[in-house]
């Protein structure tokens, strides 16, 4: 792509404007990265510790899937296995409400600034989700049996 290089140089030279209220220094996240690295190192190390230190005595019964001693049924779950619908439903509901939270948080931070308008909006927002919620509830989407 011949036009890419000039574009990139230009973008690289574009001054990055700094909105005052945005903490823009990525270095703030450095401790998080350090923590992640340490935690990961610890976890991997621990996970590798088992095979290194522990004994390894092969036994056919050991590596069979555990099913309370009955002959394991042949692979019902991986690949072609099916998961009860209720779990999908829960996943979908979770996404729905998770998204609601995504909006509630920023709103909550600046709710005072938004005042009555914010109240109206958030009320409409929650009501909208509420409609869906009522629907799911009444149609038995929240019932497990």
């Amino acid at each position: 792509m011949p036009t890419l290089r000039p574009l990139l140089t230009e973008l690289a030279q574009t001054p990055v404007a700094q909105p005052p209220d945005v903490v823009s220094n990525l270095a703030v996240y450095l401790p998080l990265v350090v923590m992640f690295a340490l935690a990961a190192a610890f976890a991997v190390f621990s996970a590798l510790l088992g095979p290194l230190l522990g004994p390894s005595r092969y036994n056919k019964a050991k590596v069979a899937a555990y099913e309370c001693g009955i002959e394991p049924s042949p692979q019902p779950v991986i690949g072609g296995g099916r998961v009860p619908v209720a779990y999908y439903l829960t996943a979908m509901l979770f996404i729905l409400f998770d998204i609601e939270m995504v909006f509630l948080y920023p709103f909550a931070v600046s709710a005072d600034v938004l005042g009555m308008f914010g109240l109206l909006e958030i009320f409409l927002f929650i009501a909208t989700v509420g409609f869906a919620y009522a629907y799911v509830w009444r149609r038995g989407g929240l019932d497990w049996n």
Binding site: A17, L96, I99, V102, F103
Partner: peptide, 19 residues
């Protein structure tokens, strides 16, 4: 790059839509 928050807000909307 543009120094405005619009893009981040859009990202919010995109997340919702993606969900």
């Amino acid at each position: 790059i543009n120094g405005s928050l619009d893009g981040q807000i859009m990202a919010f909307f995109v997340m919702v839509v993606a969900a």
